[in-house]
Structures are given as structure tokens and as C-alpha cells.
């Protein structure tokens, strides 16, 4: 299909606003619009539409801005607090790990000695070692994790409510 002059002009009217036109096409469009009332009306309508979009104004509530700044500051303080805790947490975890390795070995020998002294089978003192040495720490860790969860969801909920 051969594009007629009006279709070409309509396409160019939009193209001028979207990506611009090369000088020769702009000149052609200008000449066409000067003699074609229908296309000129289209160009005028589109120019007014674009101008209206550009001049559109929207009210911004200063209270919302203040609330936003305040919320950002609160969140920044929370993040800072979390950052401060990270080295402490890593230090505690590292110390616990080293302590566990050292004392774990000592306790292993102590349980083995106790088992032999009391005449227990290897399986018995090994089980007592596992239950007495690993499980309490695991249970404490699990309890700690489970206790923290409801707090987290509650604070999230409050956050969503804007409290």
C-alpha cells in the first residue's frame, strides 16, 4: 500500500514529538501543514495535548513529605543499629565456635573416660555426649529463633498500618 501524503503527515506529526524528525522531513511537514487544514488541525490538537501534559500540576502534601523524611530517618536508625550489632554477633558466633571446638574435644575425652570407668558400651556414652552436649545448644538456638518470629511479623504489620 502506498502511503498517501496525509497518512505520512499524521505519522510525522507524532514522530516529531516522540523521536524528532530529520530537517528535510520537518520541512516537508511544515509545507504540508501550511496547505492542509485537516492535518494542521491534527498537529495542533497533538501540540495542545503535549503542552497540557507538560503543564499539568499535582498537589503534594507537605505533611506527607515530613512523614516520609521521618520514616526514612527511623529506618536509617534501625539499619545503623543492625549494622552495629553485626560485628558483635560475628564475634559472639566466632567465640562460641572456637570455644565449642576446644571444649568439645575435652568433653569427648571426658565422656569416653567416664564411659570406660563405669563400664558403659561405646554407644551409651556417645549418645549421652550427643544429648548432653549438642542438643541443649540446638534447643536454645531453636527457641531463640521461634521467639523472634512473632515479634518480626508484628512489627511488619504495624509498619503496614503506618503505626
Amino acid at each position: 500500500m502506498i502511503e498517501n501524503e496525509h497518512e505520512r503527515a499524521t505519522r510525522m506529526i507524532s514522530a516529531e514529538h516522540v523521536e524528532g524528525l530529520p530537517p528535510e522531513e520537518r520541512q516537508w511537514l511544515k509545507e504540508h501543514l501550511s496547505v492542509c487544514f485537516a492535518c494542521s488541525r491534527k498537529a495542533d490538537a497533538l501540540s495542545r495535548a503535549v503542552l497540557s501534559v507538560r503543564s499539568m500540576s499535582v498537589r503534594v502534601d507537605p505533611l506527607m513529605i515530613r512523614a516520609t523524611v521521618s520514616r526514612v530517618r527511623n529506618r536509617a536508625a534501625e539499619i545503623e543499629e543492625q549494622r552495629r550489632r553485626v560485628p558483635l554477633l560475628w564475634g559472639a558466633a566466632s567465640f562460641s565456635f572456637v570455644w565449642m571446638v576446644i571444649t568439645g574435644a575435652l568433653m569427648w575425652y571426658w565422656f569416653a573416660w567416664l564411659g570406660r570407668s563405669l563400664g558403659w558400651a561405646d554407644g551409651v556414652w556417645l549418645s549421652i555426649f550427643l544429648v548432653g552436649w549438642f542438643f541443649p545448644a540446638t534447643l536454645v538456638a531453636l527457641t531463640f529463633v521461634l521467639m523472634r518470629r512473632p515479634e518480626f511479623s508484628k512489627s511488619q504489620h504495624l509498619l503496614e498500618l503506618g503505626a
Binding site: V53, R54, S55, M56, S57, V58, R59, V60, D61, P62, I65
Partner: peptide, 9 residues
């Protein structure tokens, strides 16, 4: 009271 947002920025 309100800030106004309009073009040109």
C-alpha cells in the same frame, strides 16, 4: 499550603 508539581522542572 501545598507544593506544586508542574513542568518545566
Amino acid at each position: 499550603m501545598y507544593g506544586v508539581a508542574s513542568w518545566p522542572m
